[in-house]
Amino acid sequence: MALRVDLTFDCVRAKVLAEFWKLALGYEDEPPPAPFATREEWVASFGDLEDDGGDGAWLRDPSGVGPRLVFLEVPEPKVAKNRLHIDVRVGRSAGQWAVISAKVAQLVSAGGRVVATFEGHHVVMADPEGNEFCVAA
């Protein structure tokens, strides 16, 4: 049986980041595991988790190819650069820079910000919590 990789992000605002990354990657909310009707019901099944007062969000690639993304709220803010980042690949085409630029504009309108632009190649961005990622062909 092949193993599956999930990417889990500790963050301050799980729902905000989940909405941003759904837009960035075309992901969708992952339903709770059976037999639970909601994520809240599933979380409650773990009992009283004193250290875990935060929210969470679980996303999946609708095609089933990409990794699951999990966003878990933690009380402490980010203090250093991540050692792992996501590359958002928009696909190679004759007008790939226009496609990259359009995706960047969409993500800026959703709360992302441009960190650096490498004209014709890629754009380094930050999501609403400052996690850096790249948009490239």
Results as ranks from 00 to 15, higher is better:
Gly54Phe: 15
Glu40Ala: 12
Glu73Gln: 15
Ala34Ile: 00
Ser63Arg: 05
Pro33Asp: 02
Pro62Ser: 12
Ala34Pro: 05
Ser93Tyr: 01
Thr38Glu: 03
Gly64Asp: 03
Arg89Asn: 12
Val74Tyr: 00
Ser45Pro: 10
Glu73Lys: 04
Arg60Met: 14
Leu69Glu: 02
Asp87His: 08
Asn82Gly: 13
Pro33Thr: 03
Val88Gln: 05
Ala57Lys: 01
Asp52Lys: 08
Ala80Pro: 02
Asp29Ala: 04
Asn82Thr: 15
Gly53Met: 07
Ala44Thr: 01
Pro33Ala: 14
Pro75Ile: 13
Phe71Pro: 11
Val43Leu: 14
Leu69Thr: 04
Tyr27Gln: 02
Pro35Ala: 06
Gly56Arg: 08
Val74Ser: 00
Tyr27Pro: 07
Gly54Tyr: 07
Val74Glu: 12
Val74Ile: 11
Phe46His: 07
Gly56Trp: 06
Glu40Thr: 10
Val43Asn: 04
Val43Ala: 13
Ala80Tyr: 10
Pro31His: 08
Val70Lys: 09
Glu41Gly: 02
Leu69Lys: 05
Pro77Thr: 14
Gly64Ile: 12
Trp42Lys: 01
Val65Cys: 03
Leu84Ser: 09
His85Thr: 05
Asp48Lys: 11
Phe46Pro: 04
Val90Gln: 04
Gly53Thr: 14
Leu49Pro: 00
Asn82His: 09
Asp61Glu: 12
Pro77Asn: 03
Arg83Thr: 15
Val65Glu: 11
Gly53Asp: 01
Pro35His: 10
Asp55Ser: 04
Pro33Trp: 07
Pro32Trp: 04
Glu76Thr: 14
Val88Gly: 01
Leu84Tyr: 06
Glu50Ser: 12
Phe71Glu: 03
Ser93Thr: 11
Pro32His: 07
Leu72Phe: 07
Gly56Leu: 14
Gly47Phe: 02
Asp52Leu: 15
Trp58Val: 15
Ala94Ile: 00
His85Gln: 13
Glu28Lys: 11
Gly56Ile: 06
Glu30Met: 11
Val79Trp: 00
Arg89Gly: 10
Asp29Leu: 05
Ala44His: 00
Leu49Tyr: 02
Trp42Pro: 03
Arg92His: 08
Arg89Met: 12
Asp87Leu: 11
Pro35Phe: 02
Trp58Glu: 05
Pro77Arg: 13
Pro75Cys: 09
Arg68Ile: 10
Thr38Ala: 01
Ile86Tyr: 10
Arg60Ile: 13
Val79Glu: 06
Asp51Phe: 12
Ala57Pro: 07
Asp61Gly: 07
Phe46Ile: 01
Pro32Leu: 00
Arg60Glu: 02
Glu50His: 06
Leu72Trp: 13
Glu41Tyr: 02
Thr38Pro: 02
Trp58Ala: 06
Phe46Ala: 14
Glu28Ser: 14
Asp51Trp: 09
Phe36Arg: 06
Glu40Val: 02
Val88Tyr: 01
Lys78Ile: 10
Ala94Val: 15
Lys78Thr: 09
Gly64Glu: 00
Asp87Met: 07
Ala37Thr: 07
Pro67Lys: 07
Ile86Lys: 09
Ala37Gln: 13
Trp58Met: 12
Glu73Met: 11
Gly66Tyr: 00
Pro35Glu: 06
Asp29Phe: 01
Glu50Asp: 05
